[in-house]
Design a protein around this nucleic acid. Sequence first.
DNA 1: CTGTTAGCGCTTTCAG
DNA 2: CTGAAAGCGCTAACAG
Lengths: 345, 345
Amino acid sequence: MKAATIKDVAARARVSVASVSRVLNDQGVVGEDTRRRVMEAVDALSYVPHSGARSLITRKTDTVGVILPDLFGEFFSELIRGMDLAAREKRLHLIVSSSHDDAEEASFAIKSMRGRVDGLIILSPHLDAAALAASMPRSLPVLLMNGGARDVERSSIIVDNHGGAEAMTRHLLDQGRRRVAHVAGPGGNLEAEARRAGYLAAMAGAGIEPVVLDGDFDQASGYRAGAAIAAMDIRPDAVFAGNDMMALGVLLALQEAGLRCPEDVAVGGFDDVPISSLVRPTLTTMRIDIAGTGRRALERLVSLIGDAGESSPAHEIVRPQLVVRESSSSNSGKGGAKAVLAQGG
Amino acid sequence: MKAATIKDVAARARVSVASVSRVLNDQGVVGEDTRRRVMEAVDALSYVPHSGARSLITRKTDTVGVILPDLFGEFFSELIRGMDLAAREKRLHLIVSSSHDDAEEASFAIKSMRGRVDGLIILSPHLDAAALAASMPRSLPVLLMNGGARDVERSSIIVDNHGGAEAMTRHLLDQGRRRVAHVAGPGGNLEAEARRAGYLAAMAGAGIEPVVLDGDFDQASGYRAGAAIAAMDIRPDAVFAGNDMMALGVLLALQEAGLRCPEDVAVGGFDDVPISSLVRPTLTTMRIDIAGTGRRALERLVSLIGDAGESSPAHEIVRPQLVVRESSSSNSGKGGAKAVLAQGG
DNA sequence: CTGTTAGCGCTTTCAG
DNA sequence: CTGAAAGCGCTAACAG
C-alpha cells in the first residue's frame, strides 16, 4: 500500500488535480465547496505532497547542502548548529556531507548534490580554489568558507586567521613571555597555514626565534606537542596552539608534567569552542562566533539563491577576537574564574 | 545558462536519451561506439544527472533523514558523526532537521520529508510514541531512538537509561557515599525521566532518602544545581547528574565553592561525551558509545529500507557501561589521571 | 472558478 | 543494439 498521490486526492474529492494543487498552495481562487472537499480528501488519505516531484517543476528544492571536511570536534558541530538554526527559520532543509579530505571526494560530493539542493556551503580548508571551481556548475549558488577563496569568483566568508594568530602571539609576548612556541595545524590546511604564518610574522616582528611543533588540530596531537615542550632543554614559557582542541591537549600534558599554567607556561588557543571556558585553567583564545558564522553563511547563501543571477561575489571577513582567560593572564585569581563562569555557564 | 540535461547530451552525442541513460547506469548492452560518443558528450557538457528527477521514477532518493530535538552539545554531534560515517560508506546522503521540542513541529518536519528520503531516524525524547506514529505513513521505514518507543510498532534502538542510572547510583553508594543527590533532566523528557526513576529505585533499594534537584541537561543548569548543593545545610557527599554536561556544571560550581571533588563530593554523569575525559577531575560516567550508536542506527535503518516490507520490528537495547574516573574514585592519584589520558588523548 | 494539457529530467518497457 | 514513448507526482499556462 503506497502513499496517496495528488491524483488519489483529486479522485476522491471529485475534482481535478489542478484544483487540489491550487488548494494546497493556495494559489488562484478556489470555490468554497471545492476547497472543503479537497481538504476532506487530503486528510482522509493523510496525503502529503511529494516534494521531490514538486521540486522537479518548481526548480527549487528548499534544501541547501553543506560540504564539510570533517564532523569531529566542537567546531563543526557549532557551525552546523548555527546553520541549522538559520535554515529552520527560513524553512529550509539541510543536507550535510562530510569527510572530504581530498579534492576528489569533495568534488564527487558536490556533483552528487545536483538536483537535491538550491545552493551549497563549502568548507574545505584543504582544497585550493581552482579544484573547487572546476567541479561546480556556474549556475549553482555557492558560498565558500575556504581559507584560500579570497580571490575566486565565488562569494565567501573567511576568517582572518593570519591576523588572529598575530594578535594571539603578540598577546603572549605582551605578557612578558619570550619563548613562545606554536603548535601548528595539519600541513596543507589553509587555515592552519595562515595561523602559522601569522605566528611567524609576530615573532619576526618581535625579533624572537620561532619554535614550531607539528600537530593536526586534534586534541591528541596537542597532548604530544605539550609533552615534547615540557621536556625541552630550553623550555618555552608560552604556547600558541593552532586551535582550542590542541591547546587543551597542551594544557593536559603540561599538567601531567607537573608544570603550572599560566605560571610556568602560558597557553593560547584559537576558535573559542564551548569547552574552552569549561576547563581549568580556562583557556585564552581567539574567539570566532562559530554558530553565528554558520548562521551568517546560510543567510548569505540564501540571498545568493535569491538574486539568482549576478551580483558580483562578495568576500566577507570574520575577525577573531582575543579573549583573555586564566591560561594566559598574569593575575589568574578568583576574579578571572568568576568572570569566565558568568559567561560560560 | 542552465545545467545540461540528458537531452542535451543525447543531442550532442546523436543518440537517444535512452542510450545515454543506459551508458550512465551501465545497464543493458550498449555499442562501443555509442558509449564513447555519450561519454564525450557528457564531459564536454560536464553533465551531471539530476538526482531529483531520477528519484522520482526509481522511487529512491539515496537519502535518509534524521530528526533531532536539538543540536546543542556534544551528544548530538557525536551521534550525527557516527551516522554520517555510516552513511558515507553506504553512499547515502544525510538530511538533518533539529529543534523539535514539541510534537507539532516534529510531525511537520516528518511530513516535509516525504519525497526527500528513503527512511527516517527519529530521536525525540519528548514525544510519546502515539503522537509519532500518527504522523508517519506506514510505508516509510523509520527507526526510533525514543525513550518511550519500547512498545510501538516500529523498530528502535533505546538506551537502558533506567538500568544505567541505577548502576551509577549504586556505584556512588558503593564508594561509601550516603547522601547521593540527583540532578534531573528536563521534565517530559523520557530519557531524563528514566534516569531519575533509576536513581530513585537505587536509593530506595539502599533505604536512603533521595534528593532531586531540577536541571535541563544544559551545563548551566548543572552549575546552578551544584551551587545549590554546595550551600545545603546537610550537604550531599555525592551527585549523580542526569548527563555529562550537567555533571560538568556541578563540578565547576563545587570547585567555585571551594569544595574538592571527589574528596568532599563525588560526581557522576551519563553519556560519556568526549569532553568528560578532558576535564579535571576526569568525570565518572555511564558510557554510551555515542558515535557507534549513531552508526548502528543508520545501518539498521538501511536494512529496514532493504527488506521493504515486513520483518517484524525489532527493539535493540544499548546498555551503558560504568566508567570510573577521578570524580568518583577514592584513590584519585596520578595513576588514575594517566590511565584516562591514555584513553582521552 | 475549474478542468485539460503539457511538461520538469529521468528510467524503462516495448518495438524495431 | 538502439529509439520511441509512456509515465514518476506535481505545477502552470490556457481554455472553458
